[in-house]
Amino acid sequence: MDDHPIARDGIRTWLSRDPLGRAELIASGATIESVLRGPGATADVLLLDLELHGVMVIDRIAELCAEGRRVVVYSGHEDPETILAVLDAGASTFIAKSENEQHCVDTIVTVATDRPYVPPMMAGAFLSDARPQRPRLSEREREALLLWFQSMSKASVARRMGLTEATVRQYIDRVRVKYAKIGRPAPSKAALLARAIEDGLIQAHEIQEYRSFAADPESAP
Rank of each mutant, 00 (worst) to 15 (best):
R211F: 04
D49V: 13
F213D: 12
T93K: 10
E24W: 05
E78V: 07
A27E: 14
D44K: 09
V105G: 08
C65M: 08
I172D: 06
E78M: 07
S138E: 01
P217R: 09
A166E: 13
R159N: 02
E81Q: 13
V118T: 15
L20C: 01
L201F: 10
R140H: 04
G200M: 12
D199A: 11
L87C: 07
V109A: 13
A155L: 02
A85C: 07
Y117T: 14
H53S: 15
E206A: 04
Q208K: 11
Y179K: 03
E206Y: 00
T110F: 08
P119T: 06
A89N: 02
F149T: 03
L163F: 02
G183R: 11
R142F: 02
S16I: 10
I207W: 02
G124T: 05
E198D: 15
I172E: 00
T93W: 07
D49F: 12
G29P: 13
S156E: 15
G38Y: 01
G38E: 12
Q203N: 12
S92V: 00
H103V: 10
L137Q: 04
E165Y: 00
S75N: 08
E206Q: 15
Q208W: 11
A186D: 11
L50E: 09
R17M: 10
L163W: 01
S188Q: 04
E198S: 14
E81H: 08
M1K: 01
T82G: 09
I182H: 04
G200A: 08
P80E: 07
E165D: 03
E165Q: 11
L87V: 15
V118F: 07
E99K: 07
Q170V: 07
R174W: 06
P119H: 03
M152R: 15
G124P: 09
A123L: 07
S28T: 06
V73W: 06
I172S: 03
C65L: 02
S16R: 15
H53T: 04
F126Y: 15
A204P: 13
I108S: 01
A166K: 10
E51M: 14
V175A: 05
Y171G: 00
R22F: 15
I197G: 05
V86I: 15
D9S: 15
V45Y: 11
K154A: 08
E78P: 01
T167S: 13
W14S: 05
A191I: 04
T167Q: 12
I6A: 14
I95Y: 10
A155G: 07
V71W: 11
A190G: 12
V55G: 05
F94A: 02
H4V: 11
E198P: 04
L87K: 05
A91I: 14
S153I: 10
G38I: 03
P221I: 03
E99G: 08
L87W: 05
E99S: 10
L146R: 12
L25E: 12
Y74M: 02
K189L: 08
